[in-house]
Computed example of a mutant assay.
Amino acid sequence: MASKAMDVADACPTEDFIAALLEYLVEPKLHGESSAKGDISQIAQESIAKQVHAVVLLYNYYHRKQYPQLEFLCFESFCKLAVVIKPALMAHIRLFQRSNDTESQPFPLLEESIMEACSISMSLDASEDDLNIDGWPISKVAVFLVDSRKENCFLQFGSITEGVWSVIEKDVDVSNNSLEVPVDSDHVNKKKRIIKKPLKGKSSSKEGHFQQFAFSAVKEATGIDQSNLVVLESHVTYSTSTEKTAVYFYIMQLTKADNSIALQIPIKNTIDSLQGPLALKSSSWWTHTSVVEYFLLLPYAEVLSDWLLREGLSDGVQVQRVGLETINISSSDWSERPCEAEVSERYHNHVNDSAAELLSSETITQSLKHNDNNGCLGSEMNFIKAESQ
């Protein structure tokens, strides 16, 4: 049974949490990528968008999962708050640009990334304890690689999100029909939101394809051949990179000692880094914790914790459960959404109003107070997509 949710009195307020994460994940990109003319390259825009994507996901899903009482920030509300905290982001968000020809232009990468992260967070639904991933296609494989003694692991730093550790991951080409297979509901442990058993029957051959794909991912990342690897376990869990998709997750072991491979990160330290709140108050301000620096491992946290206990790698010390079962999620209203016409009118008003009015503290406060606890996202995204066509 899940433990109680963290005390809301200890929760980092929304504004402080977003500020702490923007400072850690986004500020270095804003400071380092701008040119003397203020122009920003396509690569830099993509990098900034990827970092902000992580901030949205960390708040709307993981932080709210620990503190369900916090409001969901839809696209519009997040944008308003983000540009107040980091005004340099305004240049990347069309919502605040007054040019008459903006409606004919494609949405900036940052806007698309924010909308995508909001959509992913909504589909994962931090307010619910059970997530039904039945039918979700597998979009990538992930590998947690450990050494021959099961003491250290191989993690990559900054390969997906700068400033964040990750396991080996590789996207699956969904155009390859031999790999595109939906999650089988017969093997879903919905309480834990993972598939504890490999896919069987007709899917067994496709599981083999995924395994070969995982071996190739390890080869690309480390140079280690399949002949020097053994699969200890395989699971399927949710993905945080693409909406309503799943990940085939493998725990693999290097069968021989190889000092040339940098498997020097203690496994138990990694597990410990996935526990606790995402932000803590230090003196008069809030700062991120190690959970943020390892958050890309959170979909696999419970699997890893269980494996650690089964393998007896905890030296007799009870390992605190991590991941989804550490939090008790209370219900919240997600069903009420404003009509599309209302969202359309509100969106046009924001585009046409002055930036100063949009970014006033009063406007931000009102937007956050009347945010529907996330309800505006669905209709708002549909309207925005329609406008862009």
Rank of each mutant, 00 (worst) to 15 (best):
H288Y: 09
R94E: 06
D186M: 14
T222S: 06
V317Q: 11
H288F: 07
V172L: 15
H235F: 07
V319E: 13
A386P: 02
V236E: 01
S216G: 02
D258W: 01
V303K: 03
E207F: 12
S379L: 02
A246F: 14
I195H: 06
A9L: 15
D333Y: 13
Y67Q: 02
G323C: 12
S330F: 02
N328L: 10
A9Q: 13
L109R: 11
V322K: 09
M1H: 13
I327M: 10
R310M: 11
T245V: 02
W286C: 01
S119G: 06
T14L: 10
V230R: 10
E220Q: 14
P108Q: 10
I265L: 14
S260Q: 07
E116V: 00
I329T: 11
S283C: 07
T222Q: 07
Q320T: 14
Q66V: 03
V236I: 15
L110V: 05
T287W: 05
T245Q: 08
K86I: 04
R310H: 11
A257M: 01
S34E: 09
R321M: 15
E46Q: 09
K281G: 01
D315L: 14
E33Q: 11
G316W: 13
E342M: 02
G378C: 03
L308I: 12
Q253Y: 01
D372R: 03
S290D: 15
S290H: 12
D173M: 07
L145Q: 06
E27C: 01
S185A: 11
A36L: 13
Q389T: 05
L73D: 03
I271H: 06
R346G: 01
K86S: 09
K197V: 14
P182D: 03
T222C: 05
N132V: 12
G32H: 07
M1D: 10
S123F: 12
K50S: 07
H288G: 06
F144W: 11
V322D: 05
L313H: 12
W136C: 14
T240M: 11
S314C: 13
V230A: 05
S367W: 04
V55P: 10
S104C: 05
V319M: 14
Q318F: 14
V172W: 08
A117P: 00
K170A: 12
Q51T: 00
S119T: 11
H350C: 00
R149M: 06
C12M: 08
F157W: 11
S284C: 04
A36M: 07
F215Q: 03
N177W: 08
Y294Q: 15
T240L: 10
C376H: 04
S204M: 13
F75P: 04
